[in-house]
């Protein structure tokens, strides 16, 4: 009796291991954090682009409006891809776009905006990348959609056609 059970069990065991590995192969090993969650926005203060003032997050995100905070840099190539969509989103009435200029030089950033036009209502400066960390961002570009001081959507990587229409859908 015992002689039969062990083979069957071990074969069964290896089959399960096989199945799990097989399933794991279909998944990607690149990490994407949970995207759908509602969270309070972090509190921080940041310098304003080309101005010598510092603002608190409480002063920036006010009222019932939607905000889109977009982490960008002039040296970031995919940022150029999403720029057009940002320009289109600028047209939206109840959406304000806040830029978070990530580890950039002021001169390069100005040139970038002059070349591609400026979609931002306000630009904050993140000189050493710490504000992006507070937001839970780990690279450029990333964007967060905010409503009533809550993050309602997190976008990793450039905004594309689909994401654009999704944002449009949410804010209307």
């Amino acid at each position: 009796m015992k002689f039969k059970i062990i083979p069957i069990l071990s074969i069964l065991f290896f089959f399960i291991v096989f199945a799990i590995f097989f399933k794991a192969l279909q998944k990607t090993s690149f990490y994407t954090p949970n995207i759908n969650f509602e969270k309070e926005i972090p509190s921080f203060s940041a310098k304003i682009f080309k101005m010598d003032i510092e603002k608190n997050s409480e002063e920036i995100f006010i009222g019932n409006q939607f905000y889109l905070i977009n982490v960008w840099a002039s040296w970031c190539v995919p940022c150029r891809e999403e720029h057009n969509f940002l320009m289109k989103l600028k047209e939206q009435k109840n959406l304000k776009i806040i830029g978070l200029n990530y580890k950039d030089k002021e001169k390069n950033a100005s040139n970038f905006l002059r070349e591609l036009k400026n979609p931002y209502d306000q630009i904050l400066i993140d000189e050493n990348g710490t504000i992006a960390i507070e937001w839970g961002a780990y690279g450029v570009p990333e964007s967060f959609l905010i409503h009533k001081r809550k993050i309602i959507k997190k976008i990793i990587g450039p905004i594309n056609e689909n994401l654009y229409s999704e944002i449009e859908g949410i804010i209307q």
Partner: peptide, 28 residues
């Protein structure tokens, strides 16, 4: 490419499936 590591070779699911089946054939 199932693991996230410093040394990952180019990922190709087809290769993974082949070695997996081969490996378990040997085990069985």
């Amino acid at each position: 490419g199932i693991l996230n590591s410093v040394h990952t070779f180019a990922n190709d699911p087809e290769r993974g499936v082949f070695i997996l089946i081969f490996l378990f054939s040997l085990i069985f």
